[in-house]
Simulated assay, not measured.
Amino acid sequence: MGSSLLAVSIFTIFLCIYDKAIGWAPSDRTEGFVSLPLNSSNFHIHKPRNLPENQRYRFIDGIHWFWVFSTDKPLSRNSNTKPRSEIRIRGYDYSSGVRQFEGYGYVPNGTSGVCIMQLFGANRTATTLMMRVYDGKLMYYRREVLVPYIYDEWFRLNVIHDVGAGKVSVFINGVLKLEFNDSGGTFHYFKCGVYAQGDDSYYMESRYLVIFQWPVPSVSLHCDCQAALAKAKSKTYNAKRRHIRLRHNLVKQYLSEGTIALDFVRSERNLADPLTKPQINKVVYEASQGMGLKLVA
């Protein structure tokens, strides 16, 4: 386990250096977003129904490896879809707010006619977005070429979905490549891997490193009480009074969805303190300045 984590760290550092060396845009597309914790419980593997997981997916040294053959069976017995080996990110389905998928991807030469990333959920179709590869070209479905040649190089993919505005933005290596109106839908989630499409090659493969899902918190809350923060973030806290328990569960839900963010702030830097409790003149004056208020003579 230690050597695997070391390899991931070294490889991630290498990618950051490579990021700058080849001139990827320096701006951080995740700025203003909050990282959601992802572990193996959030990665649901979709694979040919008759094969064990390790014959079409492996997680080695921090890299997710996906491969499939055009002759493989579909996901389920009643499915008429083509073969796939994908991660379906679960536990963070969303229907509002702003969400972002970020990952470093790799597609080897020869893989073609395949979807390597999906934004699932739409009104009239299954997906709002499919990132496909055809003969080395990275495409939006089969409508628009985003990168003319994607083979044998790591690339950074950021997909931002603003549900309220109905907008989807796609960045490759930090550069905006596509922006379009979404297709509606009651809920959404992200997928990545390989999913055969039309004119698929016999063998299809992709790899992903560092898969993240980021929400933008609608409300950022600051609290100067560590005990209150611990209770709000605890999964086992259970108040005796029903109304408190219901409020706690609601806070946990908003935290898990990324609707709110809770951060600790020291009392002396908590600008709201004079609005909720008596304070000395110095604290009231400094808080008023911090809020941009002016004293009226």
Rank of each mutant, 00 (worst) to 15 (best):
M1R: 05
G2H: 15
S3L: 11
T12V: 14
T12K: 03
F14W: 13
A21G: 06
A21N: 09
I22W: 10
G23A: 03
W24P: 00
P26D: 10
P26G: 15
R29V: 14
E31S: 08
V34W: 07
L36R: 02
L36I: 13
P37F: 14
L38S: 00
N39R: 12
S41V: 11
N42K: 10
H46G: 05
H46Y: 14
K47G: 04
L51A: 06
E53W: 00
R58E: 11
F59S: 03
G62L: 09
W65I: 08
W67R: 00
F69A: 13
K73I: 07
L75Y: 12
S76Y: 09
S76F: 09
N78T: 15
P83N: 06
R84L: 09
E86L: 00
I87W: 02
R88F: 06
I89A: 07
D93C: 00
D93P: 01
D93H: 10
S95K: 04
G97T: 10
Q100A: 05
E102P: 00
E102W: 05
G103R: 03
G103Q: 00
G105Y: 08
G105C: 13
Y106R: 04
V107C: 03
V107Q: 02
N109A: 13
T111Q: 07
T111C: 14
C115H: 00
M117C: 11
Q118G: 01
F120V: 12
A122W: 13
A126L: 15
M130G: 06
V133F: 08
Y134E: 15
K137V: 14
M139L: 12
Y140N: 02
Y140L: 08
I150E: 02
Y151C: 01
Y151N: 03
D152S: 01
F155C: 04
L157M: 12
N158Q: 03
D162A: 09
S169C: 07
V170M: 11
I172Q: 11
L176T: 02
K177L: 06
N181R: 12
S183T: 10
F187A: 06
H188T: 05
F190T: 03
K191T: 00
Y195R: 00
D199P: 00
M204R: 02
E205Y: 01
S206W: 10
L209W: 06
L209K: 12
V210M: 15
W214Y: 08
P215I: 15
V216I: 13
P217D: 13
V219A: 12
V219G: 13
S220I: 07
L221S: 07
L221D: 08
H222K: 09
C223D: 09
D224Q: 04
S234I: 06
K235S: 14
N238H: 11
R241A: 13
R242Y: 08
R245E: 15
L246V: 02
H248C: 05
L250H: 13
K252S: 11
Q253A: 10
Y254S: 08
S256C: 03
G258Q: 06
D263H: 06
D263R: 11
F264V: 05
P278A: 10
N281T: 02
V284E: 07
E286C: 10
A287R: 01
G290W: 15
G292L: 04
L295M: 09
A297C: 05
A297F: 11
